[in-house]
Computed example of a mutant assay.
Amino acid sequence: MIATLLAAALASPSACTPVPGVEALWKNEIRYVVVGEMHGTTETPAAFADLVCAARDKGPVTVALEFSESMQSMLDAFMAAETEQAARAILAAYPHGPFVHHDGRGSVAVLDLLLRLREMQRETPSLKVVAFAPDSPRVQGFNQSYSELDMGHRLATAARKAPDSRMLVLVGNIHAQKKTIESFNLTPAVVHLPSAEVVSLYTVPQGGTAWNCRGEACGANPLPETYDAAARGVVIQPYGNGAFDGVLALGPTTASEPAKP
C-alpha cells in the first residue's frame, strides 16, 4: 500500500525534481526570476516547472509565460477546467497563438508545462499564470525595442497586481537580457525592470537539438556546445558580459515537437 502511494506521488505532474543551486534564487530582494531560453527544447520547460514547484515553498508565485496577452482568458479557462481532457480541448479549440502557428512556444514540452502548472494550482490556489507578450501592433518607424518596452510594462503590471508574489518568467533569451544589444539597436524587456529585483538566467547551449524553423524548413536542429556539457543547475555568475546574472545548465537538449493539444 505504501509503495503504491509513493509511486503515485512520484508520478504526479506537480512533483518537484530538485534543481541544483536553486536556493540562490530565493533572496528576499528578488522579485523576478527570469529564464531566457531557446524555444523548442524538452528540457527547459520541464526545468522551469521544477523551479516553479520549488518557489511555492518560499511564498506566493506568479508564473509569466511568453504567450500573447489575448490568450489570457483561454489560459484562465485551461487552468480552471475540471479535467485534463477538458483543459486540452480548450487549448485545442483556440484558433491563434503558438499551438497553431508553431515557433517552439507551442511544443509538447510547453503543453506538459501547462499541465503541470494546472496541477500545481490545484495544490496551491494562490499560484497565478499570466500571458505577457504584447498584442500591440507594429508601427512603421518604431522598432522591436517598443515591443520590448510593452513586454516589460506587462511584467511590471502583473507584479503590481500580486505585490507579495515572486514572479517566475519563461521567455526567449533575447528578451531576458539585462543590457542593450548594441548590434541590433535593441533594448530588451528585462532592461525596463529594476535590475536589483531581477535574477536573469541564460539557458546555456550544451549541445543537443531544438525544434525550430530555419527558413522554410522546420524540425530538430542542432545546438552548439558553448558551455561545459557536464554542468547542471543554477550557476550565479555574470554571463555574456553582464547580460545575464547567471546560467541554467541542463545538459544537451532534445527537440520538442509541436503539440497537438
Rank of each mutant, 00 (worst) to 15 (best):
M1L: 08
A7W: 05
A11W: 08
S12Q: 09
P13F: 07
P20C: 06
A24S: 14
L25T: 10
L25P: 10
Y32M: 05
T41N: 13
T42N: 12
T42G: 09
A47L: 05
D50G: 03
D50H: 09
C53G: 05
A54Y: 02
D57P: 00
K58T: 10
K58M: 09
P60D: 14
V61C: 06
V63W: 12
S70Q: 11
Q72E: 14
M74V: 05
F78G: 04
F78N: 04
F78R: 00
A80V: 02
A81K: 00
Q85I: 14
A87N: 06
A89M: 09
I90E: 11
L91D: 14
L91H: 08
A93R: 09
G104V: 10
G104N: 08
G106R: 03
A109M: 02
L111D: 11
R116Y: 02
E123G: 14
K128H: 11
V129D: 14
F132G: 04
F132I: 15
F132D: 02
P137A: 07
Q140D: 10
Q144P: 07
D150E: 14
R154G: 08
L155M: 15
T157Q: 14
K161L: 15
A162H: 15
S165W: 04
S165C: 05
M167Q: 07
V169F: 02
V171N: 08
H175M: 06
H175R: 00
Q177V: 09
T180L: 12
N185V: 13
L193T: 11
L193V: 10
L193A: 07
A196R: 03
E197A: 13
V198S: 02
L201D: 06
Q206W: 05
G207R: 00
G215I: 07
G215T: 07
E216A: 14
E216P: 02
P224N: 07
G233Q: 03
V234W: 03
Y239D: 13
G240I: 04
N241H: 12
A243K: 12
F244V: 04
D245C: 02
G246R: 05
V247P: 06
L248F: 10
L250V: 07
G251N: 10
P261E: 11
P261Q: 06
